[in-house]
């Protein structure tokens, strides 16, 4: 089973990479989101797929019985939350970039490059 999941995780990673290489910044954001998903799956696989039992201690017992490794789950939760925050921030940035430049293509957004550019004739406008 891990083979299938590993294949899927690697595949999703590849799709994410492909999207991140786009010149459209929204695709980049979606690609990063897809990458986050893929990496979460990688983390999950690190704990090995072996059981379907969630790591909850049953009433009456004091220890955890046979179950999935709980540690990767905690890590993934943290990673999901952080990835969520990043995705939304990036979306806000993309929105601002569109408002400022009128385009969503990364090769047409060049305010940072023109600021203080040694190859430009004069001083760049920094609005």
């Amino acid at each position: 089973m891990s083979v299938v999941y590993a294949f899927v995780a690697a595949g999703l990673f590849g799709c994410g990479v492909y999207m991140v290489l786009s010149r459209h910044i929204v695709r980049v954001i979606l690609g990063l989101s897809l990458l986050t998903t893929a990496v979460n799956l990688v983390l999950f696989l690190a704990g090995r797929i072996r059981s379907a039992q969630p790591p909850l201690i049953r009433e009456g017992s004091e220890r955890l019985g046979e179950s999935v490794d709980p540690v990767p789950q905690a890590l993934i939760l943290t990673a999901i939350v952080i990835g969520f925050a990043l995705t939304v921030i990036l979306a806000a940035l993309a929105l601002r970039a569109y408002r400022a430049h009128g385009t969503l293509r990364s090769d047409e957004i060049n305010a940072a490059q023109t600021l203080g550019d040694p190859f430009a004739p004069g001083e760049a406008d920094d609005r």
Binding site: L93, A94, A97, A112, Q113, T114, D126
Partner: peptide
Amino acid sequence: RRRAQIDGAFR
């Protein structure tokens, strides 16, 4: 929120 900053931050 300057243009250059948005651009730079995104990259």
